[in-house]
Write a protein that binds this DNA or RNA. Structure first.
Length: 298
DNA sequence: GTTGAGCGTT
């Protein structure tokens, strides 16, 4: 009974791949998903009826029909629509639960001439796309420009385009960047990892993997031990992760809350490996920095 | 009344 493999393919016409079964004869959905990312189940053609038939799936475990997998070729089920492949599923999920996805954020404009006004900025940036707001930062007392400002666009595409190039404004080259002042902003961070809050102790890593699979390929699940009522789930695609942020989802009958996984900072060398000067200068740099990390959960 | 890498009074 050991070393049993079942034959699985994406389509009946495709060459099957052998997937290992467990000692008790069942096959883990995660074993299938390891070869077919995004898979959510299996089906097969019943030799008698010639109809496709679903394989029983309980808590992430696939059970052999009639207790025997036989030599049939099992076909992978994908979420929502059997015929679609992962990329399309990712895109569809991202659009469906769209949130914070491709939202624009303020851009800092560096290097402005002292004379440039907000109207000048608006006139210039409007040539790229619709402008929501512009600001020129000025000295409170004399009203002199500090030589930088902010701009926000309606469309994310415009923002991307503007960041990608230098800008000649009133005779000076200027740069547009994402500001680093926002640590838990309404945009970027573009993490592929989500924070799953309000977890219960009976949720296993496999439970979470099985559940989140429906949204896209899951690359990692982390549940801190001892139990701390939260978990981290990492997707292959940041858009899937971002799209889920803010959602309340029901897992094993429990409402969990999804938010952005904040970067861990317990080891600054994870962020800057091989920093010149060693740990002392790196730590000193961070102490001096205005840059504040949010509290970490790890 | 200056300046030229940066990071946002309300």
């Amino acid at each position: 009974m050991s070393e049993l493999y079942i034959r699985v393919a994406e389509d009946e016409s495709e060459e099957p791949m052998e997937i290992p079964s467990e000692d008790d004869g069942t096959v883990l959905l995660s074993s299938v998903a390891a070869q077919f990312p995004g898979a959510c189940g299996l089906r097969y053609r019943n030799p008698e009826s010639q109809c496709m038939r679903g394989v029983r799936l309980v808590e992430g475990v696939l059970h052999a029909p009639e207790n025997d997998w036989g030599s049939l070729v099992y076909v992978v089920n994908y979420p929502k629509d059997n015929k679609r492949k992962m990329e399309e599923i990712d895109a569809a999920s991202a659009v469906k639960v769209k949130r914070g996805f491709q939202k624009t954020s303020d851009l800092i404009v560096l290097g402005l001439p002292w004379k440039t006004s907000e109207q000048d900025l608006k006139d210039y940036f409007s040539t790229f796309g619709e402008v929501i707001m512009v600001q020129v930062k000025r000295d409170a007392k004399n009203g002199n420009s500090k030589g930088f400002g902010f701009v926000r666009f309606t469309d994310y595409e415009t923002q991307t385009k503007v960041i990608a190039q230098r800008h000649m404004i009133d005779g000076r080259w200027c740069d547009c960047k994402l500001p680093n002042s926002r640590m838990c902003p309404d945009e970027p961070m573009r993490s592929r990892k989500i924070f799953v809050g309000r977890c219960t102790e009976d949720m296993t890593p496999d439970d979470l993997r099985q559940y989140f699979m429906q949204y896209g390929e899951v690359t990692d699940v982390f549940i801190p031990k001892p139990f701390r009522a939260f978990a981290f789930v990492t997707f292959a695609d940041d858009q899937v992760a971002q799209a889920l942020c803010g959602e309340d989802l029901i897992i094993k009958g429990v409402s969990v809350h999804i938010s952005n996984a904040e970067p861990k900072h317990n080891n600054i060398h994870q962020l800057f490996p091989n920093f010149p000067g060693g740990s002392a200068s790196l730590a000193a740099m961070f102490d001096r920095s205005r840059y504040q990390f949010p509290s970490s959960h790890v």
